[in-house]
């Protein structure tokens, strides 16, 4: 946190070199009072509604509890062993990482490429940016319902809108987008790319805006082609933006719930289940709160590990330890 490293005004609550210790004690008490008054509400709300539930989840995860009766059936790590042995959960974890990897491999480069192309003076640039940004501002529910209607098909007579369009274009036998277990995750990835590519492009464009033109000019004078210039100069300078986007993308993909829940509910045959979908479907919806909490804890641990590893290797410079080190 560069901003914090350059120290601000030092009003200290610690012992200050004043003449009267009584007065300094009073001032110190007053400073603490102010701190409590100002930060207190946020801290309380945060502790109570963010941290406490996480701790409670960890606690519930050691019980067999249907959410109705008393919490008295302690079962140790049984929920965890059951979870880790369940092939459907393995599939869910795999699906989360499928989206993580595919996003990084496909969405990222695609967004960078489009942003590089668009990073010039264009007429209607503002309008184009706004249009590209539209899918991102929609709620996942409205977008998901729309895609569900677009893709749902019951061949041979009840083709959905997308399939009808493909058939007029000559593709007689389109894939079963939502019904084929081997296809459904690609479909979901397609929908997610539609939803989030715009944000990635706009983020990259914002990053590109801070790359000075002079660098390009210098490179061009050296005889470098446009493509070489972009690859050797612009893209490396885009590093921080790419890392930020990747962080948002990874965390989002690990927590993926809304879109899947709306479009497929995790089906067919659990083929599109993710950790969060698994948690709701096998925890809350069948009143196994203890088991669902164990899923939540595992989901958290996986997110934490991924975030820490990512921070260690990629985000270090940008975050300067915001996640672990705090203010130094």
């Amino acid at each position: 946190m560069t901003a914090l490293d350059t120290a601000g005004p030092a009003v200290t609550a610690g012992p200050a070199p004043t003449r009267s210790t009584k007065r300094s004690a009073r001032r110190r008490a007053r400073t603490w009072g102010e701190i409590a008054l100002l930060a207190g509400p946020a801290v309380l709300v945060y502790l109570f509604f963010v941290l406490l539930p996480v701790l409670l989840a960890a606690y519930y995860s050691f019980f067999n509890w249907n959410g109705l009766g008393p919490l008295d059936q302690f079962i140790g790590f049984d929920n965890y062993t059951r979870l880790l042995a369940d092939p459907v959960f393995h599939r869910s974890v795999f699906n989360n990482f499928f989206i993580v990897v595919m996003s990084l491999l496909i969405q990222g480069p695609l967004a960078i490429l489009i942003a590089l192309l668009m990073n010039r003076r264009l007429r209607f640039r503002g309008l184009l940016r706004a249009l590209i940004f539209v899918p991102y501002v929609l709620s996942e529910v409205t977008a998901g319902l729309a895609w569900q209607i677009l893709l749902q098909s019951v061949p041979p007579t009840r083709w959905g809108p997308v399939d009808t369009l493909l058939r007029t274009l000559g593709i007689e036998d389109p894939p079963s987008w939502l019904a084929d277990p081997d296809v459904v995750m690609w479909t979901m990835f397609g929908i997610l790319t539609w939803k989030y590519l715009g944000l990635a492009i706009i983020l990259m464009l914002a990053g590109l805006a801070s790359v000075p033109d002079e660098l390009h000019e210098a490179a061009a004078l050296d005889g470098a082609g446009w493509w070489q210039t972009q690859w050797h100069i612009t893209v490396p300078l885009l590093g921080p933006t790419i890392r930020i986007w990747a962080f948002l993308s990874i965390i989002g993909a690990l927590q993926l719930f809304d879109m899947i829940w709306i479009v497929t509910g995790g089906g067919p045959l659990n083929a599109s289940s993710t950790m969060a979908v698994y948690m709701v479907g096998n925890g809350l919806n069948v009143s196994q709160i203890g088991f669902g909490s164990a899923v939540a804890v595992v989901l958290f641990l996986i997110s934490l590990i991924v975030a820490l590893v990512y921070q260690r290797f990629a985000l270090r410079r940008d975050l300067a330890g915001a996640l672990t080190g705090g203010v130094r």
């Binding site: 749902q152 098909s153 019951v154 061949p155 007579t157 009840r158 939502l178 019904a179 089906g267």
Partner: peptide, 25 residues
């Protein structure tokens, strides 16, 4: 059964199994 059974819901929408019966599909 009809095609795509695992992406066909049971009720409430036209492409549900109830809707397919209702539309004489």
């Amino acid at each position: 059964f009809q095609a795509n059974p695992t992406s066909t819901p049971a009720q409430s929408v036209p492409n549900s199994s109830a809707g397919l019966l209702a539309s004489q599909t």
